[in-house]
């Protein structure tokens, strides 16, 4: 494997966004790019990352390899990279280590690190292609604000999407709260628009603790997409350039 990223910041942000949710992960490398799928310890949330080969220049992967990496270790090494450093990942066939180099674009500084790899026997889930009943695309900062504000009151949020809009509601010991958003096009700045596409009404309840955690990815993208269907996990997607993405799935809370 040899994969060169123009900006180390991208990988730094991705790892920062997921390291509190998942610890040891396989980075599956093949000629289409670098993918990661991992569940949190409680098997309630799942991270699915895809960094397409087009996000790297150049990208070369001659044989499929799984790089088992501890994200705490990776974070320690990535802290040594400046955001605008050029980052290159390298690994041999059947590797013991992954090699990372950070090159400063404006000086002759080159730093080089090896991280020991681990054997990770991870359960892989098959995620079917789903036609979601509701898809909401909104500013990622708005979604962060909603989850943060509501998490101060309650552990859970009900998300209801109808043709009127989307409503986030919570009930806690001190009282209750809600935030409603309508479809809205911001003509000056499209990134601030709220787009809602709905085929049937949806109402689901989720744990806010996980949603707050997902929002650590907000720095990766101005926009976030929420995909919901009744009685299936929520998909929270942060799109990256070149069709790369960071997705989170969250199992709902089910009424008894």
């Amino acid at each position: 494997l040899e994969a060169r990223l123009e900006q180390a910041a991208m990988l730094k942000r991705v790892v920062d966004a997921i390291k509190d949710l998942v610890q040891d992960c396989n980075f599956d490398c093949n000629d289409s790019g670098i993918a990661l799928q991992a569940m949190d310890n409680s098997h309630v949330a799942l991270v699915s990352m895809m960094l397409k080969s087009e996000s790297f220049s150049p990208f070369r992967c001659d044989r499929n390899i799984a790089l088992g990496i501890n994200l705490t270790s990776l974070t320690k090494v990535l802290r040594a990279a400046q955001g605008d450093d050029i980052l290159t990942l390298k690994a041999e066939d059947a590797p013991d280590v992954v090699n990372l180099t950070f090159e400063s674009p404006e000086s002759d500084r080159l730093s080089e690190y090896d991280i020991k790899l681990m054997d990770i026997d991870q359960e892989h889930l098959g995620i079917p292609d789903t036609e979601y009943a509701a898809t909401i695309t909104l500013p990622s900062s708005e979604f962060s604000r909603i989850t943060r504000d509501l998490s101060a009151l309650s552990e859970s949020v009900a998300i209801e999407c109808t043709k009127e809009g989307v409503k986030f509601t919570c009930t806690g010991d001190i009282g209750n709260g809600s935030v409603s958003l309508r479809q809205h096009t911001n003509v000056e700045n499209d990134a601030k628009s709220v787009d809602i596409s709905l085929t049937e009404p949806v109402a689901l309840t989720f744990s806010l603790k996980y949603l707050v955690n997902f929002c650590k990815a907000a720095g990766l993208s101005d926009r976030v997409r929420l995909c919901l269907s009744n009685e299936v996990p929520l998909l929270v997607e942060y799109g990256l350039s070149n069709n790369s993405y960071l997705r989170f799935y969250l199992a709902p809370k089910i009424g008894d």
Partner: peptide, 14 residues
Amino acid sequence: SSQQARLEGFFQVK
């Protein structure tokens, strides 16, 4: 009250 579901209830383990 509601119960937290697990992902295996929705996605198949490969």
